[in-house]
Design a protein around this nucleic acid. Structure first.
Lengths: 162, 162
DNA sequence: CCCGCTATGTATAATGG
DNA sequence: TCCATTATACATAGCGG
């Protein structure tokens, strides 16, 4: 979709196909999230590949995707309860690990936010001289943080149900 | 994504949201099909809305999506979590991107400036050039956002111990 | 509400490191 | 192979019919 128009057919070249897969997977995920957020709907995507990657991938999470689908397909509930406890501790552990990294980012963000705001206010220029676009950037940053945290919370909740 | 840049948030206007939903749903379907064809993978998307439309929608078909998801569900828990964690990297990526923009503007000597500013605050100097009403408005807004972050982080922490 | 249009924002194929 | 950059193709918000 750039430089050259690409024919809608299987990409024979391994490297090109894999590169395209990664880019498009990322783009697809973004689109799913956008649709979900903008229109207030539950949405998920699943990719199952035996060539490009060895594992199936699902968004926004396996549990969410699965639950969504079973909502209107009404799946036998019994078969999913067996491994629940073991799964829960495993998943908690892994989420905690990932969360640790995310926290560092959040803390760094918060520090930067505070630093910048305080600097602009107290540098002697005052609020009235603060550039609008900077304020907008700041609010966007905060919003993103909140959204990111919300998503994590959702995943966490879903993990317990799993 | 056209004419105007759209904020990534729920579209309040009914007509606009529905229009956007239909357009984006179509676009998403196309993307799913393209990824599937170009990269030789099975892919599906499911949208479940209680507002925009009454029926859940799935591609390439409900049955296919269900089958795929069922397969996915049988994976060991650890692998599922790893896949789901892709969401995590996206969040980090977005945060990093926003961070980068801020850094470019005010990168120099943040720590030193922060120290200096804190000193100014504590010393009673520096605030007198700021319009009171503006300062109050902004600080309230920021505090609210940060408080929201704190509460969510606390909930996250408590969840781990849970 | 559904088209179709079009200006703009986005996604991404190629490319080079 | 992965990352960053760039040039282009594509997706879509806002509008008018």
């Amino acid at each position: 979709m750039a430089r050259n128009r690409v024919k809608l057919a299987y990409i024979a070249n391994d490297a090109a196909r894999k590169a395209s897969y990664n880019k498009r997977k990322k783009g697809l995920l973004k689109k799913v999230n956008e649709l979900s957020t903008l229109c207030g709907v539950d949405a998920c995507a699943v990719i199952y590949s035996s060539t490009c990657n060895s594992q199936p991938e699902a968004w926004p999470s396996t549990a969410a995707a699965y639950r969504m689908l079973s909502d209107f397909k009404t799946l036998p509930a019994a078969e999913q309860s067996n491994r629940a406890m073991t799964q829960e501790s495993l998943i908690k552990q892994q989420i905690a690990k990932a969360e640790e990294g995310l926290k560092k980012v959040h803390e760094e963000n918060r520090r930067m936010e505070l630093t910048q705001i305080m600097f602009q206010i107290l540098d002697g220029r005052g609020l009235n001289t603060v550039k609008k676009e900077d304020l907008i950037d700041l609010s966007m940053l905060i919003e993103q943080n909140l959204k990111g945290i919300d998503i994590r919370l959702q995943m966490l909740n879903e993990s317990y149900v799993l």
